[in-house]
Amino acid sequence: MPSTRDIRRRIKSVKNTAQITKAMQMVASAKMRKAQQSAISGRPYALLMNEVLGAAISGAGDFSHPLMERREIKKRALIIISTDKGLCGGLNTNLLREAFKLPASTTVYITAGRKGSQWVARLRRELLAEFSPKDTPRFEDARAISKFAQELFLSGKVDAVDVVFTNYINTLTQKAELTSLLPLDKIQKLDPDIRGAGIKEELRGITGLDTTFEPSAPNFLGNLLPHYVNFQIFQMLLEAKASEHSARMVAMKSATDNAKQIIKDLTLEYNKLRQANITKELLEITSAAMAMGN
């Protein structure tokens, strides 16, 4: 049976924890709003670029670009976009479960975010490069990752590049997704509601009239394709950030709620014990008085 002092001590420590998680929740929710905003405002661009690219590829006829080349997959690279810190619920667990699906023997890893690197290191898998994008991802961060992946693909060291990231759907829902980045052999139509890789149907180009390219189709696509890959990664970084902050906010909110519940339970127990003690003392006094009186 714990004494009242023990319970008081526990209440105090739980209160402290609640205060910390509450503060973290506030920080996360402020960051979340910003991250969500930038993830959502990037979507029109991603959609339009997707459309333009689809039209360009179908309009260019039997043109082929090295980035579109489809080879037999002997080695594939996986880009893991994870968070740097924990305390965000099951976000990284879900993400890495997705990453785990690819066979270890034929996969090499590129990571963005510390949790991903730790996971690769723990499983003793082959880590090619480690990037650490800032808390608000910039386009340059994405370009660096993308350039590395493209060079890897073009030099023939890997035959495919996939990405696993957390797609932001709303504050309560984030979905870990594994999507193919390279080769760009099939450009798939994006879902207008959910950016990510919400794939609905194969993209069709404009039909009927032939499209003219200025200066030329290879030139246009040669510039557009690498940019498309850069931007894809950028958008994924944004989505991952929005997911991270949302997940952290939700996790911290439930932690605070739990702490409050525990405080409530403990206070009840404390009061019960206190009253029991008082009753016991009263009993002792009265029984002592009665013994004296007789």
Partner: peptide, 19 residues
Amino acid sequence: PGSEGEMGIFPMHIPLMTQ
């Protein structure tokens, strides 16, 4: 401002992709 020079576009233009 096209990469090949300034261009003016009116409705019913032929499909064109440029930078």
